[in-house]
Design a protein around this nucleic acid. Structure first.
Length: 890
DNA sequence: CCGACGCGGGG
DNA sequence: GTGTACGCGTCGG
């Protein structure tokens, strides 16, 4: 028979001492497939120190029936340029799980110098050797198999397999969430699961939502109720089995729901076979601090770590990563409001209505988790990464950048006759760490910024700088010169030499050329494409190609990489530093423009016109000039900043204009200035955003100061809505275990004394505001609702100094103020405005701005920083004391 | 400035 | 499963 499917998972079993590979997939019409392949055996390579015969005899003696074959092969060694292949021994054995043992024994025997590829997972050994990639589409020819061990609609042997055109994925997605009733975080050892909520896409028996509840007390439309946890779990297993999902989805299931569920199954003596195999159970493993869940034949997806990755890469920003917060932000729909501390109470003695609400709460969690996943198309990029790198979807989701790249590297190294080194041992990692602290790994160059306010700034950057450096200098473990050869070489700025491309093109550069080339092709297709779904897929693909290309540099400097080489990592950054500083020199010696800032692969150049067209034109000319002098990497104009406020290295905000098909796209760009931070109240975020907008868009810093004054006045007059002042923190342990005094903890203690119902418990988030009073700040934390009801005064001083000012400080510092100045200014301005009814008096001895020539006074600083009447310099006076000369850049 | 903690998400 | 790995912010020295 013949069947076409998308490759989802691959593993192996050892039925009678012989490994059998299993490929799991999904057809275009939604049928699950498993292919079996027998006869493929594990192998690895060693570099002999003694005669081959001695090694084979040693192996026969030690491992007799395990060794299938020992043969001589010729391969290139992976590190250091060497024109000749080297003779290695390829050792084939019958059991993949025994490979580490054999490798260890050989290494410690002293008979071999080195072992290669002895730690490549068997499934990947197979996939690489058969040219199979994760998530790609294949057509398989084989004979139907009848086995009860795996559950799939189609089961067959693998006779022939060939890659085919990709089609649309047809996944069944099961979202689940468990509830448990306990004080504080539930411990699976002795806390039962009370509810399992489920959300199906596509629907299951015409239902999308379903809750399994371990009590007969309630029932309803979307509810299945059970006598006990055990009965409920049994049904859950049934449903997973008959729904047969490809993807199991849930929020934080990796670190909570899955391990919890597996533990409860164990406690109830139920099978843990949630996967497509009746012999291999689902497993949860913890090593170090990372946790992983494996369900044979299915993909486990947890949006939580994915969103964290998105946040880190700046694709999305979250203040908090709680499901409620995330859902609110993405789909505008949050959780049902039940404090965690109330679940136990409701479960034990709640009314029918309360129980129903708890069940709805559980269902809602699954529902919004799915909706977030679906809205953001969370696996699209990962599917693309899987297709491009060849790694399995699950591994792409679980692993870091390095693991994704490694599969691709092994494939290419193998293809070109190179072997790949083992992963470093702990000892080796330590050695690398030491070497690094000794020699150092210097990062990118950040040019000294001209701090302050600028106008008409051109932003240029090098396209894919590090990948192009690797290509340009032919940087690769296989081209680095570690011994003397009389061949043409290229020297990186850190004096490390690589053989030139004519001698041997490196594998890194070769892969990178292909990745960049494919990306350009995909981007071209994307531009022409009209179909929204196809566009999404193409966009995911170009993103994946970019991610992989950008991962090379990090990989070479990653301590646990197979192909870690400090000299290479340093060669790449040294080249980057060289290029960016050379760029600055070119601009500043060959033109009259000044570079006001630059970081890693970009420069900001101040120009002398307000004309946007012209600015872009100048940018193009500058790029051309730089390119003609540098060669290796191409500089291009990215955007123009109408206005730009540079605070320090890595921190700036600007009003950026980008060219688009329809004209110019204007937007405020912020780097390193987070307006969203978990420890700031909403007022802080809003004020900071507003201030930056006024400065950048209206170019009226004095108005920004007025705005701050306004906020301060409103604070003092109790005119700011309490909700904007709420600060959130969560309780992490029992109250008595807190050593220091913390506001949210003090508040909870207060609430207890007050005898309030629904006291927040461990894990609950507590929102508080700081009110006026004589005690220390922490003791003055108060419940926002209580403040509203009793009309209490908030501590405006606290909010000013601890919430509003710190972020504004940096902004105004760039404009010439120190923290104390702003603070005084804010106070004084408001004071003098009140006293003088908004008009400052023209006498020395008041707080405000005074022209040093004509004594004209200003309540706020002028835009130019100079007197409007006589253009004289303006000074800030505090009382009779001249505090500071005010100067604006530009 | 460094290194050891410890927390996040979940109930 | 031929594996054994987070990343950042805070606190104390």
């Amino acid at each position: 028979m013949r069947v076409a499917f998308q490759l989802l998972d691959c593993d192996y079993i050892l039925p009678n001492g012989h490994p059998v590979i299993r490929i799991f997939g999904k057809t275009e019409d939604g049928k699950s497939v498993v292919c079996f392949h027998e006869g493929f055996l594990p192998y690895f390579y060693v570099l002999p120190k003694v005669k081959d015969k001695e090694i084979s005899e040693f192996l026969k003696k030690e491992f007799n029936n395990l060794i299938v074959n020992v043969e001589e092969v010729k391969k290139f060694l992976p590190i250091g340029y060497n024109p000749e292949k080297v003779k290695l021994l390829k050792i084939t054995l019958s059991d993949p799980s025994k490979v580490p043992k054999v490798k260890e024994k050989l290494l410690s025997s002293g008979l071999v110098k080195e072992a290669y590829e002895a730690d490549i997972l068997f499934r990947y050994r197979f996939m690489i050797d058969y040219g199979l990639f994760g998530s790609r589409w294949y057509e398989v020819e084989g004979i139907p198999v009848n086995t009860q061990n795996v559950k799939a609609k189609i089961k067959l042997t693998l006779k022939k397999i060939k890659e085919i055109e990709p089609k649309e994925s047809k996944f069944r997605i099961l979202t689940f969430d468990i509830e448990a009733a306990s004080e504080g975080l539930p411990d699976p050892e002795n806390t039962e699961i009370i509810i399992i909520s489920l959300y199906f896409d596509p629907p299951y028996k015409k239902k999308r939502k379903l809750a399994l509840v371990a009590t007969k007390k309630i029932n309803g439309d979307n509810i299945l109720s059970f006598e006990s946890e055990k009965e409920m779990l049994k049904e859950f297993l049934n449903i997973v089995d008959s729904y047969d999902p490809d993807i199991i989805l849930g929020y934080n299931i990796l670190r909570f729901d899955f391990p919890f569920l597996l533990k409860r199954l164990e406690k109830n003596k139920l099978p843990k076979t949630l996967g497509r195999c009746s012999t291999k159970p689902a497993v949860h493993k913890k090593f170090g601090q990372t946790e992983r869940v494996n369900v044979p034949g299915r993909i486990v997806v947890d949006p939580y770590p994915i969103l964290q990755e998105y946040n880190k890469k700046g694709m999305l920003r979250f203040k908090r990563f709680g499901l409620g917060d995330v859902a609110e932000q993405i789909i505008g729909e949050g959780k049902i409001d039940i404090p965690h501390s109330q679940i136990k109470e409701i479960w034990e003695k709640g009314s029918k209505e309360e129980l129903r609400k708890l069940v709805d709460y559980a269902i809602k969690d699954s529902e919004i988790t799915y909706k977030v996943f679906n809205t953001l198309k969370l696996i699209d990029t990962y599917l693309a990464l899987s297709r491009v790198s060849g790694a399995l979807l699950q591994d792409v989701l679980d692993g870091g950048e390095a693991s994704r790249l490694e599969i691709l590297l092994i494939r290419e190294f193998d293809k070109h006759g190179f072997v790949v080194p083992l992963k470093p041992s702990d000892k080796e990692v330590m050695k690398r760490t030491e070497e690094r602290s000794l020699k150092g790994l210097k990062g990118a160059l950040v040019l000294d910024p001209v701090v302050g306010f600028h106008k008409n700034v051109i932003y240029l950057d090098f396209a894919s700088m590090y990948p192009n450096i690797i290509i340009g200098y032919n940087i690769c473990p296989t081209t680095i010169l570690t011994k003397k050869y009389d061949v043409e070489t290229i020297e990186a700025p850190n004096k490390v030499k690589f053989v030139s491309k004519k001698v041997r093109e490196g594998i890194f550069p070769k892969i990178l050329r292909q990745l960049i080339e494919s990306r350009n092709k995909v981007k071209k297709k994307l531009k022409k494409e009209k179909n929204e779904k196809v566009k999404q897929a193409l966009n995911a693909e170009q993103l994946a190609l970019k991610i992989l290309a950008n991962a090379f540099y990090g990989y070479t400097g990653y301590l646990r990489a197979r192909l870690y080489l400090l000299d290479i990592a340093n060669a790449i950054t040294a080249s980057g530093r060289f290029l960016i500083s050379k760029t600055k020199t070119i601009v500043e010696t060959k033109t009259n423009y000044k570079v006001v800032y630059g970081d890693t692969d970009s420069v900001m150049i101040k120009a002398d016109t307000e004309d946007i067209e012209k600015l872009f034109k100048i940018g193009e000319e500058l790029a051309e000039l730089i390119n003609s002098e540098l060669g290796v990497v191409k500089m291009k104009i990215e955007s123009v900043f109408k206005t730009l406020l540079i605070l320090s290295k890595k921190r700036y905000a600007g009003l950026s204009l980008e060219k688009s098909d329809t004209g110019y796209k204007e937007k405020i760009v912020m780097k390193g200035i987070e307006t969203v931070r978990r420890d700031w109240c909403t007022l802080t975020e809003e004020t900071l955003e507003k201030i930056l907008e006024i400065i950048l868009k209206e170019e009226k810093p004095e108005k920004a100061l007025l705005y701050i004054r306004d906020v301060i006045q409103k604070l003092q007059n109790n005119e700011i809505p309490i909700d904007k002042l709420v600060i959130y923190k969560s309780i992490s342990r029992p109250l008595h275990l807190y050593k220091g005094v913390q506001p949210h903890i003090e508040l909870v203690k207060k609430l207890k004394k007050r005898g309030v119902a629904n006291i927040p418990g461990i894990g609950d988030r507590v929102g508080y505001v700081i009110i006026q009073g004589p005690q220390m700040v922490s003791k003055r934390a108060e419940d926002p609702e209580y403040v509203k009801q009793n009309n209490l005064k908030i501590d405006s001083q606290y909010y000013l100094e601890s919430q509003i000012l710190p972020p504004l400080e940096r902004v105004f510092e760039a404009l010439g103020y120190k923290r104390q100045d702003i603070l005084n200014l804010g106070k004084q301005l408001s004071l003098s405005s009140i006293v003088n009814n908004g008009k400052a008096k023209k006498v020395i001895g008041f707080d405000g701005f005074v022209c040093s020539y004509c004594n004209e006074t200003y309540e706020t600083i002028t835009l130019s920083g100079r007197c409007i009447k006589c253009n004289g310099p303006i000074y800030f006076y505090k009382g009779k004391e001249k505090v500071k000369e005010i100067l604006w850049s530009n």
